[in-house]
Amino acid sequence: MSYLMTKLGDVVKRIRSKNAGPFWITVDIFCGDLKVFNLVRNTITTSMVLQLTKAPAKALKRFELEDLRVVKFSFHRQEIQGSRGDRDMHGAQIANLFLELDIKVFV
């Protein structure tokens, strides 16, 4: 069984992130088809996301919407929107962390 290393963004249709209010960020991974959806739900573990976002474990929500082929993560913002430490008012750039995430795809 061989595999190749690729980036999550190369496998899925689209990834977006946005504030869900001033205290949370929500990330939507649009997988496109069922095959990719299953790949994503099996490959992207919750602990990978916790490591990537440094979100507290008890404040990470995970949703797998098969009908839409979307895997969704919602988590506490590291900094409250607009606070002194906030770097991104709309929370939309954090999607890039997911787009560039290295994943192993078994072929």
């Binding site: 946005k18 919407l65 839409l68």
Partner: peptide, 16 residues
Amino acid sequence: PDSVSAHMLYENVDPF
């Protein structure tokens, strides 16, 4: 159906 149902995801912590 996709464009409409996907909108519940938008800026929501919980899509349901």
